[in-house]
Design a protein around this nucleic acid. Sequence first.
DNA 1: CGCCCACTTGATTAATATCAAATACTGTGG
DNA 2: CCACAGTATTTGATATTAATCAAGTGGGCG
Lengths: 241, 241
Amino acid sequence: MHPIVRKLGLFTKLDPQIIRAVDSVLSGALEFMAGTDIARQGEQPTAVYFLLDGFACRHRLLDNGRRQILSFLLPGDACKLGVSLLEHRDHTLLAMSNCRVARASDEDLQHLSDRYPSLREALQWAALVEESIAREWIASVGQRSGTQRMAHLFCEHYHRMKALDLADGNDCFFPISQNDLADALGLSSVHVNRTLQDLRSLRLLVFADKRLRILDLPKLEQIAAFDAAYLHLKARPREDA
Amino acid sequence: MHPIVRKLGLFTKLDPQIIRAVDSVLSGALEFMAGTDIARQGEQPTAVYFLLDGFACRHRLLDNGRRQILSFLLPGDACKLGVSLLEHRDHTLLAMSNCRVARASDEDLQHLSDRYPSLREALQWAALVEESIAREWIASVGQRSGTQRMAHLFCEHYHRMKALDLADGNDCFFPISQNDLADALGLSSVHVNRTLQDLRSLRLLVFADKRLRILDLPKLEQIAAFDAAYLHLKARPREDA
DNA sequence: CGCCCACTTGATTAATATCAAATACTGTGG
DNA sequence: CCACAGTATTTGATATTAATCAAGTGGGCG
């Protein structure tokens, strides 16, 4: 299934005609190798990127040389109408696995949104959800302990993957090193390693080979003080309509 | 000057006709006392709020009983087109000083944005900047020490106030208790108190009587590893046009 | 084989939380 | 004006969390 349809389908079932219109303004699929930048902090933005396949993140380099991962991008993500209104990108988009990406000019997408209000709504919805997730990350880094934070991130990732039907039972793709995890959680990599061992020894999850397997979701959610409300996942309106 | 014009004027000079149209869909000014909620986490959102005067914040209560302040709202802020697409608010809007607020229905504002593309662009711009600030908060809480974080927040607040012409020299309104500061920075209030004393004894700033006075901005920015790029403040295109 | 990278372990230190109490400050009613 | 309650700030002592430093181990791969 088309990843964008799948993602925006979490909000609403888009008319096939709209999908075709979107496709018509998208570039053919671009390939990015794991570890390469899709778009760079500081550049002037003109294009909107859609992740079609793979796993990517946004991150920002600080003046003090440190790095913070700001969010993760799953297939269908990354649409952000209006970026070209800014003079420079304030963060880098990085492919964390091999990625297939499509690009559209912001302008084209705006025009399309003018013509199809339901497309605009779906994109607005996606942007609002992404913002809500960003806010939860602030709350998480600010108020949760290292263990809770890590548990929370795993819950979040699993729920997002599940919602997109990209989880295989209690197991899903999560191609990220312990170092990246540290940069996402605001912890040192040594501490990440130890915390991971704790969670593993509690038999809550297995995180290895670029995959996350959740063994005890309720317990994990409890530890994390996880409340899925911020993900704004409605009872899925998709499928069999 | 109209606070919304002042804020959106950081992006573009809006046609007076558009301003009148916006005013026409805004409720008259609502008053909120310091400490009262403007809109609550969990409620179903229908309205878009504009802060006309005063100082407010967004915050979120976690399941573990803790609280994180997610962002600060300055006059002209708070427009977020599309909120009504979500089923519930994921955070609370709280007046931190007495506030004057105007409300518009999301629907009215969308229609207006359809009619006036430059209004839509200005609102999109404001939303993008707010997101960028949220990302910087993630980076700050994740990668900066307590002292740096606090210095950073003060730099940010000062720059934002300055950009809106709401700073009086090196001095500006900042009506927030040390407890709130702690909830914004992800520190304990005791630690905030001590960090504050450090910054004060270094003669970098004075924070008292609900005001922030910056004594040595370059030094403060250096400590904070502050880089204003994320605020997306262009060389102001306002005034004397 | 040997190198590189990711992960792991141990020891130590630094940052920050927590607990407990004292000291301002603010507004209120008498 | 004073006594008072309530809140905000400050201080000290101690405990915990997580960072840092320094060395391993282990697997993939040319």
